[in-house]
């Protein structure tokens, strides 16, 4: 087995871009949890990190919107946003075209996936990498799921995609970590930015930690939009990681609302060793 780590984290641009406006106590405890996630990934011996993001019209638009896309390049520039606005300097993250190609080839056996030889990271990947690989010295395989432009990727396909990613990770000799990024309930970049639905978040994370496939796939988009906002559509990245974890159960390391970051900031991981 070469999947050595599976976890999820928030990626909101305010986490770095509006850091000075947050309550320092809760912010610093959240950052500490992010730093522990970095330590855990390093301790796993991961040689490459699959980052599954719900990107935000940085690379993909409604002229040709893929349900799933995987990067296949030797390097990726970022952030696409203004550096001052995001609070992250311009960087180039290393990729591995050959590793991506092997992964894509295996995933494609069961899930139709688009590949991209050009990919500019937006905050969906750049914010997590700012904490997880601050020197941008770990190989990244970027992955995107359409959580933005309806009709969205169905949840059961996000699950199938996670299973395919697991099979692909296990098919290569490299040690692979998988990290899903996104918010749970939130209304980012709208008049309701800062609002979260804590009860909904707790219930979702309970399903995620139990890795309860039926419960995770029982949501529908209209209900999610009503209870968890358009930001809640990003549960797809969490669900894909759940499937990739192959039945492992999870632990929430941090989950608290930080309104200026527009989301309940979350760090959680699965215990792959217990499988």
């Amino acid at each position: 087995m070469s999947l050595v780590y599976a976890g999820v984290c928030s990626h909101a641009p305010g986490i770095t871009g509006r850091a000075d406006q947050a309550d320092p106590d809760v912010r610093d405890r959240f950052y500490a949890s992010f730093h522990q996630m970095r330590a855990d990934i390093e301790a796993s011996g991961a040689e490459a990190i699959i980052v599954i993001a719900a990107e935000h019209f940085a690379n993909f638009f409604m002229n040709n919107m893929p349900s799933f896309a995987i990067g296949m390049a030797d390097s990726y520039p970022g952030p696409i946003e203004d550096s001052t606005w995001l609070g992250i300097d311009k960087f180039t993250a290393p990729g591995d075209r050959g590793l991506s190609e092997r992964m894509i080839t295996e995933v494609s056996q069961t899930v139709d996936v688009s590949y991209a030889e050009e990919w500019k990271f937006d905050h969906g990947i750049a914010v997590p990498l700012h904490f997880l690989t601050p020197k941008f010295d770990t190989t990244i395989i970027p992955v995107n799921i359409n959580c933005q432009g309806p009709p969205l990727t169905p949840l059961h396909r996000a699950w199938a995609f996670g299973e395919a990613l697991r099979r692909a990770a296990d098919s290569v000799p490299e040690k692979i970590a998988i990290v899903g990024t996104g918010g749970i309930s939130h209304w980012p970049a709208t008049p309701d930015s800062g609002k979260v639905n804590e009860a909904w978040d707790r219930d979702f994370l309970d399903r995620w930690c139990r890795n309860d496939k039926d419960a995770l796939l029982s949501y529908n988009d209209a209900e999610v939009y009503k209870d968890a906002g358009q930001g809640g559509f990003e549960i797809r990245t969490f669900i894909t990681v759940a499937a990739a974890a192959g039945g492992a159960t999870g632990v929430v390391h941090f989950c608290e609302p930080i309104p200026i970051f527009a989301v309940s900031c979350t760090v959680a991981s699965y215990d792959l060793a217990a499988q």
Partner: peptide, 8 residues
Amino acid sequence: VNGQILMH
């Protein structure tokens, strides 16, 4: 317009 586009 989607806020993820509009905010930039």
